[in-house]
Design a protein around this nucleic acid. Structure first.
Length: 325
DNA sequence: TCGGCCCTGGGG
DNA sequence: CCCCAGGGCCGA
C-alpha cells in the first residue's frame, strides 16, 4: 500500500496532531507484527513528548523527547520509574545529560496494509488493531495492519538509527543527483523495475510509482539499466520526481486499504496512467495496457509508448502496423 | 539475482 | 477453490 506519497501524506497528516503531545500510555494486541513491538518499549515510550514526525523512504519516524519534561523534575534525576513492567531497563546513550543529540524515536513501517491514524480516545476499535498510543489530549494514535507486514519499533538512540538507515537506504527521490542516478542505472544489467524497487537505489518508490514513472519516461520497465542512454536516465529521474510530486498532491493512491493519518483515502488512484489498468487504453495512444512480470512483481506498461527498443538488431520488432488512430 | 515466504482478504 | 495484492527479508 504505502509508497512514498502515501507515507508522506500520513506524516503530513500526523505532524500537527502529534507535535507537542505526550504519550500517556501504550497498549498492544496479541498478534505480532513482522517486527514485534517489545512490551518493554511501552514503558519506554510512556511519558515521552513527541517532538516531530518525519519520513525516510517508506519509514515513518516519530522523534521523542526525554521523558518527564514536566515543570517539576524530580531532584534525583532518575527518580521516575515506569509503571508496570520493569523488564528490560532502557539503556540510553547520553540521554538526558543536556541534549547530547541522542534522543529516542519510534520507527513505523506500514507494510502493505498498514494504517496509522489519530482518532478520539475510545473510538470503536476495528479488527487488526495492533498498537495504540494514548495521547494527552483524549486522542490516540493507532496502528492497524490486517496483513501484519508492517512494524513499529522503539529506538533509544536517534542518531545511531539514522546512521544505520542511511547505510541501507538510497537517496530520497527529490534529491537525486543526475550523475549518481545515471551511474546507478547504467552500471547494471538489472531491469528498470528492479532498480526502482530497490530502496538502496532510490528510497520510497514502490510498485505503483515504479510503473508510473517508467510510463512517464516512455521506458519499458524490463529494459536493462545499462541499455539506457544518459538522456533516458535523466528522463526517468525527472519522471520519478514528477509522479511522486503529483501523487503527494493527491494524497496518495488508495487501491484498497490505504488511508492517511486522519483516516481519509487518497485520490491519485484515479490518475494512474498504467498501474492496475491492464487491457485498458493507454492515456496517450489508446493501445491496451500490458502486464508483465519483473522482479517478481506485476509491471503495467504501454507496449507502444514504452517499446523494448531493440538496439542493434536483436529482440523483437515492435513496430509493425502503420498507425493506430 | 531471484524465488519463496511472511499474512489476511477479496475477487474470479 | 485458486490467484492476486501497495513491502521487505532470507536463503539458495
Amino acid at each position: 500500500m504505502p509508497e512514498l506519497p502515501e507515507v508522506e501524506t500520513v506524516v503530513r497528516d500526523l505532524r500537527p496532531m502529534l507535535a507537542g503531545r505526550t504519550v500517556t500510555g501504550v497498549r498492544q494486541s496479541k498478534s505480532k507484527l513482522r517486527r514485534p513491538w517489545k512490551p518493554a518499549w511501552s514503558a519506554d515510550a510512556t511519558g515521552a513528548r513527541i517532538e516531530g514526525v518525519r519520513r525516510r523512504g517508506k519509514w515513518i519516524l516519530i522523534d521523542l523527547g526525554p521523558k518527564d519534561p514536566s515543570p517539576t523534575p524530580p531532584p534525583g534525576g532518575e527518580g521516575l520509574k515506569t509503571k508496570g513492567s520493569a523488564l528490560a531497563p532502557p539503556s540510553f546513550l547520553g540521554k538526558g545529560a543536556g541534549g547530547l543529540g541522542s534522543s529516542p524515536l519510534l520507527r513505523v513501517h506500514l507494510g502493505m496494509t498498514g494504517q496509522f491514524t489519530v482518532v478520539p480516545a475510545g473510538a470503536p476499535e476495528p479488527d487488526h488493531l495492533h498498537l495504540v498510543f494514548a495521547l494527552d489530549n483524549k486522542k490516540e494514535l493507532r496502528l492497524r495492519d490486517p496483513r501484519r507486514f508492517g512494524s513499529a519499533e522503539y529506538f533509544a538512540n536517534r542518531n545511531a538509527l539514522e546512521t544505520e538507515m542511511n547505510a541501507e537506504l538510497g537517496p530520497e527521490p527529490f534529491d537525486l543527483d543526475p550523475d549518481y542516478f545515471r551511474g546507478a542505472v547504467r552500471g547494471t544489467r538489472r531491469n528498470l523495475k528492479a532498480l526502482l524497487l530497490d530502496q538502496k537505489v532510490v528510497a520510497g518508490v514502490g510498485n505503483i510509482y515504479a510503473d508510473e514513472a517508467c510510463f512517464r519516461a516512455g521506458l519499458h520497465p524490463g529494459r536493462p539499466g545499462k541499455s539506457l542512454s544518459p538522456d533516458e536516465c535523466d528522463r526517468l529521474r525527472d519522471s520519478i520526481e514528477a509522479v511522486l510530486t503529483r501523487a503527494i498532491e493527491s494524497r496518495g493512491s488508495t487501491i484498497r486499504d490505504y488511508v492517511g493519518g486522519s483516516g481519509l483515502r487518497g485520490g491519485f488512484q484515479n490518475e494512474l496512467a498504467v498501474y492496475g489498468r491492464a487491457d485498458e487504453p493507454c492515456p496517450t495512444c489508446e493501445t491496451a495496457i500490458a502486464v508483465a512480470r519483473h522482479a517478481g512483481r506485476a509491471s503495467h506498461y504501454c507496449p507502444r509508448c514504452q517499446p523494448v527498443k531493440s538496439k542493434a538488431g536483436r529482440s523483437k520488432v515492435v513496430k509493425s502496423k502503420n498507425r493506430a488512430p
